[in-house]
Design a protein around this nucleic acid. Structure first.
Lengths: 341, 341
DNA sequence: CTGTTAGCGCGTTCAC
DNA sequence: GTGAACGCGCTAACAG
């Protein structure tokens, strides 16, 4: 391992001078700077960031703590975060909680232990609030992305769940659907909560009744309950049976469609399906699901910008900002007008 | 920030004893252990891993250095790597080079600087060989995944590019296709190189001639050249014009299909398309592309196991192991028998 | 079984 | 404009 001492020796200066040259701090003569830089090149010196973190209490390391790396929404968010981080001279580390609050806890410990300068955080569920105390205790700034947490006052980048839900429902209404099942994520996850509220509100505003039997809560990722849900829905008496499904995210939509196919129910001929978030990368060649697409990349890009702002002018006093990103409706072929039989 | 000194004071022992309790190293009496643990809980102590790395020269941090996080192949690989890393008490950090050799260089510096214990590495291209000197110099073990590098003798997890290519081509041959265009990745990337060689070999073994005009090299990710390639192919005289495309990865396949669609060429009615690697997550509901699917998750899972093996018994002397993972052929609907007109 | 000392690589503080 | 001493938080090596 090459240290500043090695290069100090080679350049015949003190380690301190080397440090100054590396960090452009204090004054150094041109001649010395050249000597030092040559030595650095010759020895292939790479600074030890552990040592640096220890004295500086800063690591130039950001962490993206998300709940499902297999979900294209989060993958795109990650790309956005990474791009902005690089732009601003930070390194991004990715942690995947798998929607698991325990994993999340472990990760947060590691994050603090590692000395990240900030965290871009999409909490597993509302219980994540507990974990936040740690961030506060260790004074590490974080920005909430996609999923809000009650009573947590920090910078946030959120989606507009109401307008997204409304677009999806209105589309279905226009096609004549009345019995629209809501296959939602867990009720203690912000986005699921919001989408359910919006679902109810949109119905209420239109004077439409809501059938509780059409509302389900399952996991946001990897679902084995999908088939169960479908069976329950299909067993409903004809006048209650849904003609359309509103899946709360794309992962659920996929699982539902698979379950429907397994039972020989055709989409969209017999049941229409819509959901939040798009299905990259291949939706490009095979556009099927009608969705509202959220600007996932921007969630990461903007969130990271806000995070670094916080880190730099650590005016934690400054009032938290909240950015709301609008979704876009994409009409494709998983929806069809209702068939009157 | 809480340090071992704080908890030493509270527990009325020496910092060293605290360290021993935390790490289960040396003997400590039950009574003391309890006192210390209570203090730890009370103060919410979290070890500072920078300090630890400094003395221990080990960070329990692994880095996955890949070239395209938007590619589902690498996403799944990442999940496998992460699972194994967690299993074995390591943390995984993800770096995305975007197929860019310069970004890769910067990342490798950061990786060394951060003090990762090992690297799971899928190089951008053959020039990456230069970067490897740094790993050697800093004695940080790495395992090559998916992409090999000439003359680099380390543990590897590679795909079986020959058999994958053969399955794809044989399938097309059986459907009657003879003019099969190869839309390949860059020639200095291992997988692209291997697939091209295999393409030639399979043709040769069957005594089929190869038309150089049907072979293209474009980027593995985000392609603007796709449309150009398609135009060139379609402008070929009828007897040379391809009736099928062999895309070297799924990203290229998508771009090609988009370009074909843009020109109103139907897949598979007019041109069949196949490629390496599957298109999760939604291929589940919308199976379209005929592919050979590689066990991406296993690339990460096995590679990480090998990496940690190396780290633990750093018997760098031990002969490098090479694991070759077989792909699986998935027949779907992007291919069709050739139409004699 | 427990405590003391020293040092990991670096940057801040204060001299020169 | 340059250098020496100290300390960041932790643990290895040695005492006791």
């Amino acid at each position: 391992m090459v240290t500043i001492y090695d290069i100090a020796k080679l350049a015949k200066v003190s380690p301190m001078t080397v440090s100054r040259v590396i960090n452009n701090t204090g004054n150094t003569s041109e001649a010395i700077r050249n000597k030092v830089n040559n030595a650095i090149d010759e020895l292939g010196y790479i600074p030890n960031s552990s040592a640096r973190s220890l004295t500086l209490k800063e690591s130039k390391l950001l962490t993206l703590l998300i709940s499902d790396i297999a979900n294209p929404f989060f993958t795109k968010l990650a790309r956005g975060a990474e791009d902005k981080a690089r732009e601003l001279g930070y390194q991004l580390m990715l942690c995947n909680t798998d929607e698991d609050i325990e994993k999340e806890k472990v990760y947060i410990n590691t994050i603090i232990s590692t000395g990240a300068d900030g965290v871009l955080f999409s909490p597993a569920n509302n219980s994540s609030s507990k974990h936040i105390k740690l961030f506060n205790k260790y004074q590490i700034p974080f920005v909430l992305v996609d999923r809000d947490l009650p009573d947590v006052k920090v910078d946030k980048v959120l989606g507009d769940n109401y307008s997204g839900t409304k677009m999806l429902l209105n589309h279905l209404f226009e096609l004549g659907h009345k019995n629209i099942a809501l296959i939602n994520g867990p009720k203690d996850v912000y986005t699921a909560m919001m989408r359910k509220e919006s679902y109810k509100e949109v119905h209420n505003l239109l004077g439409l009744s809501i059938n509780e039997k059409l509302m389900f809560e399952i996991n946001y990722n990897r679902n084995n309950d999908a088939e169960n849900v479908v069976k329950q829905l299909l067993n409903l008496p004809k006048d209650e049976r849904p003609t359309a499904l509103f899946a709360s995210n794309s992962s659920i939509a996929i699982d539902m469609i698979k379950a429907l196919h397994a039972l020989n129910v055709s989409v969209p001929d017999e049941i229409s399906v819509v959901c939040f978030d798009d299905l990259d990368p291949d939706s490009a060649i095979n556009p099927f699901l009608t969705v509202v697409m959220q600007p996932a990349y921007d969630f990461g890009y903007i969130g990271t910008q806000m995070l670094i702002d916080r880190i730099k002018n650590n005016s934690l006093s400054k009032k938290p900002r909240e950015v709301v990103l609008k979704p876009e409706f994409l009409l494709r072929s998983s929806t069809k007008p209702i068939v009157i039989s």
